[in-house]
């Protein structure tokens, strides 16, 4: 078994679901005890990928977006965001910072954010059949004893006797 836990979520390509998707992934990775910054990184990357699927994949039209997340040994989180939209003609060009096909209010930073906030990013796409964005991030396990405030066993015994 190469993973400890997994989940799959499918939802309509509506912009109100951007919040839902990042909240769900955030709740899913919570047992790994991520820091606020690690959680913010994951939420931001998921939000970017889902927004891309809505704006570029389905061009604001109807479609289904699927988000899969896996927790693997060693604190590795693997997140896939898939759409069956129009796909990307030139993935290399799409990955360049500030490149955007839609202009207007889009900063062209989506992939740059995913790349810098996650430990790895892979984009697989075929024009006409859709896009799969795979991102990985390691949640660094912090020493539990540092933050643990529970009393030691030998501290508890005298209290019980008292």
């Amino acid at each position: 078994m190469d993973f400890l836990n997994e989940m799959t979520l499918s939802f309509s390509s509506k912009s109100m679901n951007e919040n839902f998707a990042r909240a769900a992934v955030s709740a899913f990775v919570l047992p790994l005890d991520p820091t606020i910054n690690e959680l913010a990184d994951i939420k931001t990357a998921v939000s970017e990928a889902v927004t891309n699927a809505i704006i570029h994949g389905y061009e604001y039209g109807d479609g289904i977006i699927t988000v899969c997340a896996k927790i693997c040994p060693g604190g590795k989180v693997v997140i896939k965001v898939k759409d069956k939209g129009k796909g990307i003609e030139d993935v290399k060009q799409a990955l360049e910072p500030l490149f955007t096909t839609v202009g207007g209010e889009r900063a062209g930073l989506g992939f740059a954010v995913m790349q810098s906030f996650m430990d790895s990013l892979k984009v697989k796409s075929r024009p006409g059949s859709g896009t799969v964005v795979t991102m990985e991030k390691f949640i660094i396990r912090r020493s539990r004893t540092d933050s643990c405030t529970a009393p030691q066993k030998d501290e508890v015994i005298p209290n019980d006797k008292a």
Binding site: A40, T44, S47, E48
Partner: peptide, 8 residues
Amino acid sequence: FMDSSGIG
């Protein structure tokens, strides 16, 4: 929370 839409 803010993603790149905030930058836009």
